[in-house]
Design a protein around this nucleic acid. Sequence first.
DNA 1: GCCAACGTTGGC
DNA 2: GCCAACGTTGGC
Length: 152
Amino acid sequence: MRYWLLKSEPGVFGIDDLAAAPRKTEHWDGVRNYQARNFMRDDMRKGDRAFFYHSNCAQPGIAGIVEIVRESYPDRTAFDPESEHYDPRSAPDTPRWFMVDVKLVRRLKRVIPLAELKAHDALRDMPLVRRGNRLSVMPVTAMQWDTICSME
DNA sequence: GCCAACGTTGGC
DNA sequence: GCCAACGTTGGC
């Protein structure tokens, strides 16, 4: 099993939204970055776990843990001209963008703030805490995972 | 709201 | 294939 971190803006889709979804499960759509897509499409497996990270908000940080419950399949929002994630270069027979389904495992007891993650020596190699990083789907090592869980 | 950092686009 | 211009991300 691998570990991941998924970023989302809580104003768009936050952990409260996932908690309120049927079976606490939702598709993770809208990824439009190739590196992030490749991680999701090629390396994510059912049963993997991921941190749910809140970005671009008042309290950026890790809010919860989710499980990958469906492996990658075409992101249908790319086919929909009405969607803000529409991409005319992606077609159903030659999909360019993919999504997975995630299920909420649990919220953390508190949102672990980005500032604390940045301050922790064991986490300095995480893309998340590196300057200018914009990757929205990234792998997390077992050691980083355990470190973060211990900060809860 | 600002702006640095980054990825993508498109002319050449 | 280069690289300047542009749009987006996301912390602060």
